[in-house]
């Protein structure tokens, strides 16, 4: 169908259009972030800076605790990813292989739970966190995010375990491995791709989360990047520092962009397994 020259050109145009549409808002932030302060809000709009100016980046790190936000997001992301993956692997293996009585019902319950929007739980969650002394802590966020991401992790990993050949595990029991050893020494090495996929997606979810972070954290010491950026503002409402915001947006999103470029395939697989299987 793309055999004719015209057809090929049209197709290339379609691909280019789709890519441009996807990247435009991000690219506009990148351009804005590189403008000298005077040109950021220039009227009419300048589409290219007269000189590349990195002072917005310097400002956002110097004048604001932006480095702390990034560090918090990173710590929370890594903690959530590690905890979710570890707990998720064990649970998914049990659901996939160990014939849990009532397992099917539990899986459907988990799925139902995960469909509720975060708003449904923030009020009690804040009370719970207050009681447990986890308000304004990264630990509190890690625990909340783990609970939120576990349904997804369990479904993706279970879908993968279901496809693994059982006979390798049976050979392992005959060789004398216990269930637990089989999981760690045989199943896990074979599932490395699925575990990696799950970890990447959970990290992205955690990095991006806003509502719970906004609810559970009100101090800079534990604040994560999305909340930090949404709160960036000037001295008055009319003085929004758009250059700095753009710089912050670029710094925050660049790691995610890099992850997508590196792991595009895994992300597609993970999303498909997580959503369609459900």
């Amino acid at each position: 169908m793309r055999s004719t020259l015209r057809g090929r050109a049209l197709f290339a145009l379609a691909v280019a259009a789709v890519a441009a549409w996807s990247l435009a808002p991000f690219l506009w932030q990148a351009i804005t972030s590189l403008k000298p302060a005077a040109e950021v809000a220039a009227v009419p709009v300048r589409y290219w800076p007269s000189v590349l100016d990195f002072s917005s980046y310097a400002q956002v790190f110097k004048a604001r605790p932006f480095a702390t936000y990034i560090w918090n997001s990173f710590v929370v992301g890594v903690g959530t990813t590690a905890l979710t993956t570890a707990l998720g692997v064990c649970a998914a293996y049990a659901f996939s292989r160990l014939g849990l009585p009532g397992g099917r019902a539990a899986l459907i319950g988990i799925l139902g739970l995960s469909l509720f929007p975060g708003t449904v739980l923030i009020v009690p969650l804040k009370m719970l966190a207050t009681k447990a002394g986890l308000l304004n802590t990264r630990t509190g966020l890690v625990i909340a995010y783990t609970a939120l991401n576990l349904p997804f992790a369990i479904w993706v990993l279970k879908a993968f375990f279901d496809r693994l050949p059982r006979d390798v595990e049976e050979a392992a029991w005959l060789d004398g491995l216990s269930r637990w050893q089989t999981l760690w020494r045989i199943v896990l090495p074979l599932s490395a791709p699925a575990v990696a996929t799950t970890a990447i997606l959970v990290f992205i979810f955690s990095w991006n989360e806003f509502l719970i972070a906004q609810t559970l954290v009100s101090r800079d010491a534990a604040r994560t990047v999305p909340v930090g950026i949404a709160m960036l503002s000037g001295v008055t409402v009319y003085e929004v520092p758009w250059g700095q915001i753009a710089a912050a947006v670029v710094v925050t999103t660049l790691p995610v962009v890099a992850m997508v470029l590196a792991f595009q395939r895994r992300i597609v697989e993970g999303l498909t397994a997580g959503a369609v299987k459900g």
Partner: peptide, 20 residues
């Protein structure tokens, strides 16, 4: 008796070798 203590060896149709 659990499989590993039955003193048997099993050859699987698809061989079930540990890929890693």
């Amino acid at each position: 008796v659990p499989p590993k203590d039955r003193d048997i060896a099993f050859v699987f149709q698809n061989y079930a070798l540990y890929p890693h």
